[in-house]
Design a protein around this nucleic acid. Structure first.
Length: 227
DNA sequence: GCATTAAAGGACT
DNA sequence: AGTCCTTTAATGC
């Protein structure tokens, strides 16, 4: 029920291409951040923009019962955070580093100035947000019309296209992810995810540790688009 | 077709 | 050694 809500909410968080990232890196200072550090939470309304230079960050929400629901995973090159003009929701998002990371921090003003001075970046942000929007739309639609197995394949395809490395038909997922993370991102349960990952492994659609997906087979068997 | 519960085995620090 | 993660099975909606 509220899982659908959760997944359909839009935050400004996304990845920037390498060149733009380097430009931004010149304007900011990077700081090393240890694994398990919460760099953004509803209480610390820092109103700043973060730039993940290296590492991995998990975005999640906390339910009324105290359970954590992973919303998205970010890898190096990603931007996240809120500015006064870009925040699209009041949702209470937490951001936690999953591994030791390097993070650039920008105030909202400096980020907005940076965009004004580099119009190409605004275009890129729109492009990136559009593809992110498409991904989220695909997920919410699949929650309504498809079974859990399909949703797992879809999510792994999306993640591997965003973060993974391809070699032949196989493509790594590219992010550290638990079955719990997968479950909350597709509106399922950890145990069911475990079951279907097992099946998908037998079908040789995926391989575990490191998690990889056979994109050709996945498209053939589950008709997920894009590649 | 799936969530939930429970119970047990494995992996990570 | 203790916590987190995964697997398996039973039950019920």
């Amino acid at each position: 029920m509220d899982k659908l809500m959760l997944l359909s909410q839009i935050n400004l968080l996304d990845e920037l291409p390498e060149e733009e990232f380097k430009k931004l890196g010149e304007v900011t200072l990077t700081a090393p951040i240890k694994k398990g550090t919460i760099i953004l939470s509803p209480t610390q309304q820092m109103r700043s923009f973060f730039f993940l230079k290296k590492g991995q960050v998990r975005l999640y929400k906390v339910s009324s019962t105290g359970k954590e629901f992973t919303v998205d995973l970010l890898s190096e090159g990603n931007v996240f955070g809120e500015t006064s003009s870009f925040s699209l929701t009041e949702s209470e998002i937490y951001a936690e580093t999953m591994v030791d990371s390097f993070v650039c921090t920008l105030t909202k003003d400096r980020f907005e100035d940076f965009i004004r001075q580099n119009p190409d970046i605004a275009i890129n942000l729109i492009t990136i947000l559009t593809s992110k929007l498409k991904e989220m739309y695909q997920i919410t639609e699949s929650i309504a019309y498809k079974d859990v197995k399909y949703r797992i394949v879809l999510l792994l395809m999306q993640l591997s296209n965003r973060f993974g490395v391809r070699s032949g038909e196989w493509q790594t997922v590219g992010v550290k992810i638990t079955q719990n993370d997968i479950a909350s991102m597709i509106g399922s349960s950890r145990e069911t995810v475990s079951l279907f990952l097992g099946e998908l492994e037998k079908e040789e659609v995926i391989m575990k540790k490191p998690l990889k997906i056979n994109t050709a087979l996945a498209k053939e068997l589950y008709e997920v688009d894009e590649g």
